[in-house]
């Protein structure tokens, strides 16, 4: 066995571990956060401050029966949850946590992450189609149109960043912003004065891509019961759940790397993995904060936002950045 293969295996195991641990404890954070936003303490019963809640939940999910309803498309039904989790884990492989902590750096890291991210909508489509449930089907159709609508502005903003940096390597993009918060892409006003707007667009798109409130139309519980995972039980549901949280982590990792200087310190001191973790968890907190503040949009509201506001703005920013790069 070659050394690279061992390296890759080790990386994959580490990524799975990180993703699973994060997913499990993000559920705890989400519930705690929800509780605090609603003036209640959240889970308190299992362990101190409810810290043992995630393992308990995990055991519950794993020991439950996996019900496969009659008439489902078995192959799609079984593949879908795996497909929801798999791209998330694969994306972790190429994310640099600091200058040296990266499982497998690639010079087209950005491209790879987006390639995997678009597989997520496949999982939704498979789950919705496969489970032979009208709610699930409607949800999956929504999910796909949402994914298409939001990948466009998201990629346009990413192209802007790639243009500024001149690289698709996530590590290079992060290193390009080192030195202090004035160097971060979110404040790169000299390169394009619309960069903060660009950040907002990217952030909104991340919310939509990860199916988070207020864009959680796929699983709009008051309309579509539970959306595409209505028919899933046990770990089938668990994988969807973990996949969602893993996607949130990846979304915040990307936002941090592309806009917030990666592992760089705001004041240029002691760059390192702790800054990176701090930034992603702050972003995740914002995700939770937004979820527990706003009502859900509708499908047309969501598409209107994407096509009428986000895409024009991101396109304009792209042109402006290109023009400024050409001039200066």
């Amino acid at each position: 066995m070659s050394l690279t293969l061992i390296n890759v295996l080790f990386a994959v195991v580490a990524a799975i571990g990180f993703a699973a641990l994060n997913a499990a404890y993000l559920v705890w954070c989400e519930r705690k956060g929800a509780g605090f936003f609603q003036r209640r303490p959240g889970p308190m019963e299992n362990g101190p401050w409810g810290l043992l809640q995630p393992p308990v939940d995990g055991i519950k999910l794993m020991t439950k029966q996996l019900v496969i309803p009659g008439g489902v498309d078995k192959a799609l039904f079984m593949v879908a949850p795996v497909l929801a989790m798999f791209p998330a884990i694969m994306s972790f492989v190429t994310i640099p946590f600091s200058e040296n902590i990266v499982a497998q750096n690639m010079n087209i890291g950005v491209l790879m992450i987006f390639a995997f991210a678009s597989m997520g909508s496949m999982a939704i489509l498979f789950a919705g189609w496969g489970s032979r449930n009208k709610y699930a089907l409607m949800s999956s159709v929504r999910g796909v149109s949402q994914a298409i609508a939001y990948e466009v502005p998201m990629l346009i903003t990413v192209i802007t960043i790639v243009m500024i940096t001149g690289s698709m390597d996530l590590r290079a993009i992060a290193l390009d912003q080192s030195g202090g918060f004035w160097q971060w892409n979110i404040l790169a006003l000299t390169k394009s004065p619309l960069m903060p707007v660009s950040f907002l667009i990217f952030f909104v798109c991340t919310l939509a891509e990860t199916n988070r409130a207020p864009f959680d139309l796929g699983e709009a519980e008051s309309e579509l019961v539970a959306g595409f995972h209505t028919e899933y039980s046990s770990m089938g549901f668990g994988l969807f759940f973990m996949g969602e949280y893993a996607n949130i982590v990846i979304g915040s990792c990307l936002t941090t790397l592309l806009f917030l200087g990666g592992w760089g310190c705001p004041f240029g001191l002691f760059p390192g993995v702790w800054w990176f973790l701090l930034k992603i968890y702050l972003l995740i907190f914002t995700f939770i904060w937004i979820r527990w503040t706003f009502p859900r949009t509708t499908i047309y509201g969501l598409l209107n936002l994407s096509w009428k506001i986000l895409i024009p703005f991101s396109l304009f920013n792209l042109l402006l950045t290109a023009g400024l790069l050409k001039v200066f």
Binding site: G35, F36, F37, R39, R40, W289, W292, T293, F294
Partner: peptide, 21 residues
């Protein structure tokens, strides 16, 4: 309006809890 809404929930985040265990 979104920012105002978020500032309200953030304020509530730090307020004492009202529930009873």
């Amino acid at each position: 309006s979104l920012v105002v809404g978020m500032s309200i929930t953030l304020k509530e985040f730090f307020k004492p809890k009202v529930t009873l265990q």
